[in-house]
Design a protein around this nucleic acid. Structure first.
Length: 468
RNA sequence: UCCUUCUUAGCUCAGUUGGUUAGAGCAUCUGACUGUUAAUCAGAGGGUCGCUGGUUCAAGUCCAGCAGAGGGAGCCA
């Protein structure tokens, strides 16, 4: 077969006029369908560069039957052919095949992906193959686009990307159960005199875990570089079985010196709108597919979020609205208790009909590091609530006073010796600062219209499941 | 972890108050068709009804346990 430089299908469909009808190109990809008759075969070829397939037209007189039999749904081929304007409906251009090489066959009796639709549940069981479907191609391309947009936004706005550790020796982040990291023999660990596992003999000389948040280290960076962000994997060993939780997920955590809670809200809103707009500006092919197949209101909802202000109000105001709503809630609303999902959904989806930012929560339901308000009862926390998703961002202005922070640690029984380095930032050159955490997969749920978080990450890790 | 629903062909599903040999669409295979668009048409093959036990003359169907999956809740991002 003549050696030609491969052209991506996205490139052909976008620039076929520049490439020029009548010219020979090489395309490589995976066969979605083959149909036709004795004289001509039509192959829908996809290489993942774009959601659309390109049609390969094969005049069977020029090809041997044995080769053509190998070309089935799922097989991988390389084609040299002439790019021509298509006489048929449904595509502008197609490729008149001259030479075909079969790279890999896919036995139709055993290849699990068919031409017809599959349920998302079934595709989760074959997560190694689901990237080859239209849906996961769209989701994974958008996942890349969103990742890129995150870095671009922060870079363009004077933030530095800080790599916070994955393995942490601190157990004080207060963000839930952790995965232990150890090289000790699980069957026969060294013990102390009192019979406890002796972690001084472990790899790091102490008990270590996978991080549940990069925030504490992020603050160290912000109190030197002014504006930093993290974007990395995060782990929670909670036994959560919901469409919104993963044991391994990706989180974006900006942290800004000299920002108060209002600056923090401004940034969160601007950032989220930027990401949604980036999707609308750069992922329209995939968005149109997802809108058509999964969520008819997706594109409209994304546009609405970009064009409208988020509703900002305090926790106390939210409680008053909920109490006055006349709604029957399963859980009663009362000042001092954390809001339940049903309450958040009511505010976002029934009352305000737009994203909501809640601030100034009671201090006893929030983390130790949040800045205390002068009322002695509330802290400068903020939660951003999105339609369909619920909490997409959690953040706060941080307590910069050493005295108040230490007092709060003692009240909440957080050992100061474990976070001496964190407390040092308040001891030496402390500054007002703020930050938040955005769950990347929750953002992906919103921009793709997918309903289950396991369908917006390539290989989901959930309780009882670490396959692939 | 709690509540709830589901598990029948490769996939998506039907299967009546328990009653002969468990069905359909798609997929697969064979054949037909000169340009198809999830091609179409004709035919064929394909099942330990999630697993284990129980009730019954008789269980895909009723009961119990277990496993897996979905939805809701909690924890949160």
């Amino acid at each position: 077969m003549e050696s030609l430089k491969r052209t991506r299908i996205a490139e052909v469909l976008r620039n076929w006029q520049a490439i020029g009808a009548g010219n020979m190109v090489n395309l490589k990809g995976w066969v979605r369908t083959k149909r036709g008759n004795k004289n001509v075969a039509f192959i829908a070829l996809n290489d993942g560069s774009v959601i659309h397939n390109i049609q390969i037209v094969v005049d069977l007189a020029g090809f041997d039957e044995a080769t053509m039999k190998l070309i089935t749904t799922g097989s991988c081929i390389s084609v040299n052919g002439i790019l021509v304007e298509s006489p048929g409906q449904g595509q502008a251009v197609e490729l008149q095949a001259k030479e075909i090489e079969v790279y890999g066959t896919a036995d139709p009796e055993t290849y699990p992906l068919q031409k017809k639709g599959h349920t998302l549940e079934f595709l989760r069981e074959i997560a190694h193959l689901r990237p080859r479907t239209n849906t996961f191609g769209a989701v994974l391309r958008m996942r890349h686009a969103m990742s890129f947009a995150i870095h671009k936004y922060f870079n363009d706005n004077g933030f530095y990307y800080l790599h916070t550790p994955i393995v942490t020796g601190s157990d004080a982040e207060g963000a839930g159960a952790m995965f232990r990291v150890t090289t000790l023999d699980a069957k026969n660990p060294p013990l102390t005199e009192t019979g406890e596992v002796d972690y001084t003999q472990d790899f790091f000389g102490k008990a270590t875990n996978l991080t549940v948040s990069g925030q504490l280290e992020g603050e160290l960076g912000a109190l030197a570089l002014s504006n930093i962000y993290t974007f990395g994997p995060t782990f929670r060993a909670e036994n959560s079985n919901t469409p919104r939780h993963l044991a391994e997920f990706w989180m974006i955590e900006p942290e800004m010196a000299f920002h108060d809670i209002n600056d923090n809200m401004d940034l969160a809103e601007d950032f989220l709108k930027y990401l949604v707009k980036y999707a609308l500006d750069n992922c329209m092919d995939d968005l149109e597919f997802l809108t058509k197949m999964y969520d008819n209101e997706l594109i409209d909802r994304l546009k609405f979020v970009v064009e409208n202000d988020f509703q900002r109000l305090t926790y106390t105001e939210a409680v008053e609205i909920l109490k006055a709503s006349g709604q029957k809630f399963e859980f009663p609303v009362d000042w001092g208790t954390d809001l339940q999902s049903e309450h958040e959904r009511y505010l976002v989806e029934k009352h305000f009909l737009r994203p909501v930012i809640l601030t100034n929560y009671p201090k006893h339901i929030k983390a130790f590091y949040m800045k205390q308000n002068d009322d002695g009862k509330t802290v400068r926390a903020m939660d951003v609530l999105f339609p369909r998703i619920g909490e997409i961002i959690g953040g706060s202005q941080r307590e910069e006073s050493l005295e108040k922070l230490v007092t709060r640690c003692r009240e909440m029984e957080i050992p100061e010796k474990d976070i001496w380095w964190y407390l040092d930032t308040r001891r030496f050159g402390t500054a007002p600062h703020a930050g938040f955490g955005l769950g990347f997969e929750r953002m992906m749920l919103f921009v793709t219209g997918m309903a289950n978080i396991r369908d917006v990450i390539p290989f989901p890790r959930t309780p009882q499941n670490a396959e692939f």
